[in-house]
Nucleic acid binder design. Structure first.
Lengths: 216, 216, 216, 216
DNA sequence: GATGAATGAGATTTCATTCAT
DNA sequence: TATGAATGAAATCTCATTCAT
């Protein structure tokens, strides 16, 4: 991809930031023109940068994934153990909430993410880092052994994603309570006997896109 | 009057059943015409019965709530204790999955449910029954004491609702695993220290509609 | 036309009365179902009596024309001269206001009136009576000689028809003022020099339907 | 910005002119698509310019009012006295006929006119100019003293508006005759005793919209 | 005969996307 | 390259009219 002129670059970043904001507020189906307007550009400019909605979603996703990956690595470096790093990531990372929001409402988002090399790559990196984090936490004994990183991902993403739009403080508290309950479920020993086998991150991928999250 | 009703009644039921099906597959925003076509009626018929999408959603909700309430009472009667009844309901009731799906994507659904007396009433009954069930389970010691029925409702609904569309068997298993993990979180003793206070069902209601679940 | 059973007859009259009412309130384009509902019958019944909207309009018109003709004859019999009879008719006959209202908004109404023998006939009788009335008033010197019955009809109908919907008292007064001004114009001697020739009632008829009043 | 404006401006004007034409022919309720088609644009274009029918009506009205105001001022400047100016305006201004047509069928139009600042302002200016014109004519003795500008407006508008759609020459003559008769009524001295008080233009305004002309 | 359920064509309005300037 | 105007394909909803009961 060719280097963009400074002003074009600025525009691109502005659009991504604006889209992230609006996606969080109003979902992925918001009119393109609204995004353009809030970003202060014409629709034409938006479409020049992102030929269709899918590419815009993928670009937002790539940016957000990158940022989450950074957060995850920082947490891993700075926290004493994997569990602390995991909870810090999950409870503190704003972008993580966005990520799952993006991934949620229709699975459609995943199609787009996987179609764009840029976002697919950072997605893969993020998954790898998550694999390692979960494995470490299990080695520490702080995540139960009968779950896989895929299980962790699914449960956390569901909880984080669904609660995103809450704006009043009571809603924030309720979200946090749900999240902590879910985390307790991931630690529970002894816990229920789970059907099937631990879910790996590899198992997710496309299949995620095609069904599990389809509640558009 | 009662004579023609048979015809109309059949159609009405057919439309509700069809809408339930399609809502589950494709969300609440599916074109009205698709619903009509699959039900084998004209759009006009659909609109005669349900003047707008909201009324259709409310009607589907009323039907589903009623069925869940029946399931809940059956489980309570037939199972040895509250926890068994609760897990049976949560893992076996097909309609429960629909319920939460309906409640989810935008909160919009709640507005409609509350606007229609029919669905509002059965919703209230369902909530009352849930209150009692959770209270009993806590008395048995099978649900942790620091959560309220609202917490239970939120967590379970998130997990059930989001997984609904999964059609391949692997997805079903993954859903079930998530659900069991969440249930383990509800039993965890000792669990994390939760912020705020237990959430009651009263606290939900409209506030649910207006924010927490708004990821449309 | 066959004699109707008593109850059918009652229904027919009821529908006509209701339609007259609603036409005055909301115009000729009101949904058929509204008329049926207010009349307390099913749409099917309405359509059985009046195969389409046009026939209903014609039936209302026939009823109203007949009533206006009766009013006119009564006025002629009871008032001392033609001018008094004319002003009494024009200022007092409720049905006259309806008549013009019917005739107005689209000209469409005339098509229907002329298509139905029943209303066409009474329309013709009314026209004949009007001819005579105007001629007599001119003989008395109370209507200027350079106008024809058609002129009178047009001017009065415009003023009466347009003011119909006024419900507040101020509007009623304004309507009456306009009407009196128009009547003064019909008496003015000497008045403006008018182009063309006096307009007869024959000259109206279909041409009225096809253009002059078409402001639908 | 100014560059593209040329294009858009041309289109906007074209749409307004087309709408004026069609409104006169077929009334205010003509399908938006017909207007778009005759103007040679897509519906989308029409809706981009005028978000709903009301805005289109208001825009047409503003254009027409402006043009009438210009006609009035020209007549006032060029004619020897107020009465001549008045009759010239009333008998010669094509746009005046459109104006009243717009104002008529439902009062709805007024709502829209008043909702849009642009048309509201020019409407007010027109009213002020009319006030002055009528006052001057009364000072000259050419309009009777017991009427107000509101009376004049109502009577003239009724006559002009209702006859608008006439296309055949005979209809034109008939319209002109009615108009002259009405004008004679405005001059008649001595005339009938009118109920109530002279109607001012202030008294019209919204009340016009809400009742008097409502024969939609 | 009466009823009101069903139909489907048509009107309004919105938006993703293309393209002229 | 940026802009925003234009397009037209949906989607929602309404109603005249037909027809089964």
């Amino acid at each position: 991809m060719a280097v963009l002129r400074a002003d074009a670059r600025r525009n691109r970043d502005l659009i991504i930031a604006t889209a992230k904001e609006i996606f969080v507020e109003s979902g992925l189906d918001v009119p393109m023109e609204n995004i353009a307007r809030r970003a202060g550009v014409g629709v034409g400019t938006l479409y020049r940068r992102f030929p269709d909605r899918g590419e815009l979603i993928a670009a937002v996703a790539a940016q957000v994934f990158g940022s989450v990956l950074t957060d995850l690595r920082a947490a891993r470096d700075e926290e004493p153990n994997a569990w602390e790093a995991f909870t810090r990531l999950v409870t503190r990372s704003e972008d993580l909430r966005v990520t799952w929001h993006l991934a949620f409402p229709s699975g459609r988002a995943w199609t787009m993410v996987h179609a764009a090399p840029e976002s697919r790559d950072v997605h893969r990196d993020m998954m790898a880092a998550l694999d390692e984090l979960v494995r470490d936490a299990q080695a520490e004994g702080s995540i139960r052994a009968d779950v896989g990183p895929g299980d962790v991902l699914i449960l956390v993403s569901i909880v984080l994603g669904t609660h995103l739009a809450s704006s009043d403080p009571a809603g924030q508290v309720r979200s946090e309570r749900s999240l902590l309950l879910a985390l307790d479920g991931l630690r529970a020993v002894p816990g229920s006997v789970l059907p099937g086998a631990p879910v790996s991150t590899e198992e997710l991928g496309w299949s995620v896109a095609e069904g599990d999250f389809d509640n558009a």
